[in-house]
Nucleic acid binder design. Structure first.
Lengths: 216, 216
DNA sequence: CCAGGAACTTGCGCGCACGCAAGTTTGCGT
DNA sequence: ACGCAAACTTGCGTGCGCGCAAGTTCCTGG
């Protein structure tokens, strides 16, 4: 499909990126994330420190990327995979939630490390934005009549809601001695995610009337 | 209201912040933004360079803050100001759009400077996120039955959509030699903003049935 | 097969963000 | 009025992000 690109150059590029990712993750797990300089990562990956910054613009990015790498791809695929007779909202929400439950959901220790370190948490949350572009594409795929701006706005909204859920979850899991508010909303990530995304359903469905008439 | 806080300490703080903001803006306008070091801003504001970073975490933030400072406050007020018999969606969309049209919308030269400099553009776009918290508060204000997560998700969505519109507008105005796509969506900011926000209307209205029955 | 050139890496240097540990100012209880 | 504690400022040191200008590797048309 969009795969056959054995451009030597490209492969090397991905290889380097992968090397940096895994090196970053490994080192971060061995010593704390705080005790890993970018020079270390670069050295471990066999490239110059300068090169590191050609791939990742922040130190945390490499670590987080190792975890959230392919969510970007998977979301689009997951949406496309839903049968055409379910509403857009259902398809998207399920697909997104799925990304944060099913797969190589970071092994426990990795997640712990991320939740522990504030910088990593922030970066992990921001990483949710990476699903937006593929998502917009997926939306247009389903409903070519939707214009770009709308699709972008909707997918950005989904991304934003996901981030809210993520933040909520992270700060409830975090070492928060005094949960300032009274109400404890904490729950499983999937649950939170669904709760945060559900309010957007009307907006998503409004844009694609699910041709054939209203839901049975 | 929430104003009476003549805490000497607090006043000095705000004064310093204001000093930094305006100094940053003035210097950025005089020489280019590129030719302004944080040391300059700090000196112009009469504080240590280190102190600067206690107020702003990035150099651009100070410049942009000078422009987007009170949008944060105004949004909440603007939403609250709408009569109770208009839908939530209408109230919010109008209020947000209003923020980007009416008021001390940055004088032309300032806007030009921001649109010209990539770093500033990025920062300006991100600044739109500042409306989210007040917005969430405003939503809960209108409909106390809405739970926090939902309110946050919705306001985050609004913020995200606004950012999309903003980005679109900025990159259409920008020195883009080849607009990669065929379709030119460009338009006035208010128009773009509305277009981006409108798809969210169903979601916003779904959450607050506008007590009294469905819209006439 | 071989230039010519694009893409990528690397060393260098600058400015910036931020933790830390004083030093200074402000608020508050007694 | 006074002194203590909290808040804020400041200098210093470290690591980082990135523009720039070589140097190196890889692709492409002839």
């Amino acid at each position: 499909m969009t795969k056959p690109r054995p451009d030597l150059r490209e492969r090397k590029k991905q290889a380097t990126k992968e090397a940096l990712r895994s090196a970053a993750l490994r080192l971060a797990l061995e010593r704390g994330p705080e005790n890993v300089r970018v020079d270390d990562i670069a050295e471990a990956a066999g490239v110059s420190p300068r090169t590191y910054n050609n791939y990742f613009s922040s130190r945390e990015q490499a670590i987080v990327a190792a975890v959230a790498a392919e969510r970007e791809t998977r979301v689009a695929a997951a949406v496309a995979a839903r049968p055409a007779d379910v509403s857009l909202a259902e398809a998207i929400i399920d697909a997104v939630v799925e990304q944060y439950t099913d797969p190589g959901h970071p092994a426990g220790d990795v997640l712990l490390m991320i939740t522990t370190n504030p910088a990593l948490r922030a970066c992990y949350i921001d990483a949710a934005a990476m699903i937006e572009d593929p998502l917009a594409a997926a939306i247009i795929e389903r409903a070519p009549s939707v214009d770009r701006l709308t699709a972008q706005a909707l997918s950005a909204s989904v991304g934003a809601a996901a981030r809210v859920a993520l933040r909520q979850w992270l700060e409830s899991t975090a070492p928060s001695p005094s949960t300032s508010g009274f109400v404890i909303v904490s729950g499983s990530l999937p649950t939170l995610m669904r709760t945060a995304l559900t309010p957007l359903a009307p907006a998503l469905d409004a844009v694609v009337p699910l041709r054939g008439g209203p839901p049975r």
